[in-house]
């Protein structure tokens, strides 16, 4: 356990000591939310949503997921830097199995993402979104799963990358589309058939659906039209976590040098 906690702890300390990272990770989604959310809610009504819910209520879980996505995946950039600098090499020659190293890194990113996600969740009453204790607990659970899976997705890529530029390029190519096509921005109702299929195969679609279910429980979800059922969403999100973790561990073991 000691190696896991120490690698995890270091990820947290590093984040805390790089104030720019802390600031940008919170500011970026907030700005995005305020500008786009308020601007679009006046003129844009997603198909299948009723007037009462409004676009803010629809967009809100998407923003939380965006925060999770950015924080957890960009936390894995430290792997690329550590590799280049030699910090990672000294971890690799220590008597610590690769699965523990990856688990610790994944938990580090998960913690950071979760803390920021929670921060945003606590701000929700300010825009008129209300939920009870059950919703909060369920939401935290789903957010943890999502953050863990996304961090592992980042690790899966970061362990192969030699430079942070390359990492950014791949991430921008991958991140924005999986987020945009997860139902965070618009539901799959009414989009062209092929796009609906892409959304169906996007694991984040289910993560977002699970999160929306947890946050609004039964009441408001129905107002957002169809979407994956709760059980299926949870199952696929859980599978996503397991598969990305196994993938990241295998990648780390293969890329030892």
């Amino acid at each position: 356990m000691l190696p896991i906690t120490t690698i995890w702890w270091r990820e947290i300390i590093r984040f805390y000591r790089q104030r720019s990272r802390l600031f940008s990770a919170i500011a970026q989604p907030l700005i995005f939310w305020i500008l786009i959310g308020t601007g679009l809610s006046a003129s844009f009504q997603p198909a299948g949503t009723s007037d009462e819910t409004g676009y803010i209520a629809y967009f809100y879980p998407g923003i939380v997921v965006l925060v999770l996505l950015f924080t957890s995946i960009f936390a894995t950039i430290s792997v690329v830097n550590d590799r280049r600098e030699g910090f990672l090499q000294s971890i690799l020659v220590a008597p610590v199995p690769r699965w523990q190293i990856v688990l610790a890194q994944a938990l580090g990113g998960t913690t950071l993402a979760l803390l920021q996600g929670l921060l945003l969740l606590l701000l929700s009453p300010m825009v008129g979104i209300r939920f009870g204790a059950t919703s909060l607990l369920l939401s935290i659970g789903v957010m943890t799963l999502l953050a863990f899976g996304l961090t592992n997705l980042g690790l899966l890529i970061a362990w192969r990358m030699e430079s942070t530029q390359g990492f950014h390029a791949i991430m921008n190519l991958l991140l924005i589309p999986i987020w945009l096509l997860s139902g965070a921005f618009f539901p799959s109702t009414g989009v062209p058939g092929w796009l609906a299929w892409v959304m169906k195969f996007n694991p984040l679609t289910y993560g977002l659906a699970a999160f929306r279910h947890s946050l609004y429980l039964d009441t408001t979800t129905k107002a957002f039209g169809e979407g994956a059922p709760w059980a299926l969403s949870m199952l696929i999100t859980g599978l996503f976590c397991v598969l990305t973790y196994v993938g990241a561990t295998l990648t780390a073991s293969a890329q030892a040098n």
Binding site: L2, P3, T6, R10, I13, R14, G86, Q89, S90
Partner: peptide
Amino acid sequence: FQHPGLDGKLTVVENLRHHGHLYG
């Protein structure tokens, strides 16, 4: 290693403690 194996954001003691933990 030739490339620095220390984390610049951590203090000297924190770096050593981290390493010690890796070795139990």
